[in-house]
C-alpha cells in the first residue's frame, strides 16, 4: 500500500489538485494497480536492452517550425484563455 503522502507527492509532480476524497480513492486504486504490475517481474529477461527499443520506435523529424496558414494561427491564438495581442499571458511564477 502506498502512503497518502506518496500520493500527494506524485500528484504535485503531475500538477494535479486532488481533494481529500480523491486522495483516499487514489491511494486504494494506485496500490491495487501497482500490485498488479508486479506480475511483470516474472517475465523473462530480454537480451537486448530497453534502449534499443526506444531507438527503433523513434521517428523523429527535424526540430524546425512548419509554417501554418495565418487563418489557423489566428484560430489557435483565439483559443488562448488569457492573452494580450498575439501574446499568451501567464501568471507570475513566484
Amino acid at each position: 500500500m502506498i502512503s497518502k503522502d506518496e500520493v500527494k507527492r506524485i500528484a504535485k509532480l503531475a500538477r494535479l489538485e486532488l481533494t481529500d476524497i480523491e486522495i483516499t480513492k487514489m491511494q486504494k486504486d494506485l496500490s491495487a494497480i501497482l500490485d498488479y504490475f508486479n506480475w511483470l517481474k516474472k517475465a523473462p529477461k530480454i537480451k537486448t536492452g530497453g534502449e534499443r527499443v526506444f531507438a527503433e520506435n523513434s521517428a523523429l523529424r527535424r526540430d524546425e517550425a512548419i509554417p501554418q496558414r495565418r487563418e489557423v494561427v489566428e484560430k489557435i491564438i483565439a483559443s488562448v484563455p488569457d492573452k494580450k495581442d498575439d501574446y499568451i499571458k501567464v501568471k507570475t511564477i513566484l
Partner: peptide, 30 residues
C-alpha cells in the same frame, strides 16, 4: 485520466523508472 496520469508519473519517477517503464519496454519487445 487523473488515475492514469498518476500511474504514469509514478512509473517514470526517479527510483521507479527501471522497475516499471524500462521493464515494460523490454516486455513489449518480447
Amino acid at each position: 485520466p487523473k488515475r492514469r496520469i498518476m500511474i504514469g508519473t509514478y512509473c517514470l519517477s526517479s527510483g521507479y523508472y527501471d522497475a516499471y517503464y524500462k521493464k515494460a519496454q523490454e516486455v513489449r519487445e518480447l
